[in-house]
Design a protein around this nucleic acid. Structure first.
Length: 281
DNA sequence: AACTCGGGGCA
DNA sequence: TGCCCAGAGTT
């Protein structure tokens, strides 16, 4: 049956990788090295806590960007117990430069929830995990499949691209597209070898089935892929230009210090330090 | 359902 | 300069 074939091919590729006994797997292996996807820090010493932190950092943020932030965060807070003592300000400081700072505030909120509701131990059930702030369907699925090795689907940018091409369905931000891709992701998610499947499909999406120039020749699933060797679909997206907003500041400073204020509005920059805002309507 | 995220990398 | 990235929360 075709639906099983997809992950079987992925799994067999992964097994070949482990043994590195064919030209084919050697080619894949070289792709990994070229793209730096071997020895990703969150793939070492796998734990729910480390996968949680990495998955949140990886939301809409590229692997290469996340690596130094993950290592720094883990060196400060190697486990949940250490993190339980952190302030929101501590966590935000480690997030400086990574962007999407709501994620850092949600890490703080989530660890407080874990302290209050889960005896300061990382929850083990999908419904508990997805209840944590900053954890949605895909991140919860990633924690379940990677850390707990239970059969749950994910839908990140890699899976969207691989599956939409493999099945020949549209991949855009419309709710109908997202819904269909979730259905297909669930269909392809195997009951066994879930860890290998999840890592494998993301690796293929990141290295072989990439956005610009997919390498169908070396793709392990090209025989059953609807879009294999076909020209890349051109996304025609009418992008709206946002009107420019001006924000005015006054910065008070001495030769040694600057005066900043913690922003409390929830619209944007919540909890972040900014100069005095003037004349903003 | 659309919009946003003190963002960054890459062609 | 524009598109993309291991998405989620808010309006």
């Amino acid at each position: 049956m075709k639906m099983m074939r997809f992950y079987q091919e992925l799994i067999s590729t992964n097994n070949k990788l482990a043994h590195k006994d064919s030209e084919f797997s050697l080619g894949i292996s070289n792709w990994y090295k070229k793209n730096g996807r071997e020895n990703l820090p969150w793939r070492e010493d796998v734990s729910p806590y480390r996968i949680w932190i990495s998955e949140v950092m990886l939301q809409q943020t590229q692997v290469k960007t996340v690596i130094p932030f993950f290592n720094s965060f883990i060196s400060h807070y190697p486990n949940l117990n250490k993190l339980s003592y952190a302030s929101e300000e501590n966590i935000l400081a480690l997030w400086t430069g990574l962007g999407f700072y709501r994620r850092a505030r949600n890490i703080y909120k989530a660890k407080e929830v874990i302290k209050a509701n889960f005896n300061n131990e990382f929850p083990t059930k999908f419904n508990e995990i997805i209840s944590l702030p900053g954890v949605g369907d895909s991140t919860a699925g990633a924690i379940m499949s990677i850390a707990y090795k239970e059969s749950y689907p994910i839908l990140d940018a890699n899976v969207k691209r691989v599956i939409s091409r493999y099945e020949g369905v549209v991949n855009d931000s419309s709710s109908s597209s997202i819904k269909e891709l979730w259905t297909l992701s669930r269909k392809h998610t195997p009951l066994k070898s879930i860890f290998e499947y999840t890592q494998g499909i993301m690796d293929i999406g990141a290295t072989i089935c990439n956005t610009k120039t997919p390498e169908c020749k070396i793709c392990p699933v090209h025989r059953s892929c609807v879009s294999a060797f076909s020209t890349i679909e051109k996304k025609v997206i009418s992008k709206k230009i946002n009107p420019i907003k001006y924000i005015h500041f006054e910065l008070a400073y001495t030769d040694k210090k600057v005066l900043l204020f913690k922003r409390h509005k929830k619209t944007f920059w919540e909890s972040l330090w900014i100069p005095y805002e003037t004349d903003n309507s």
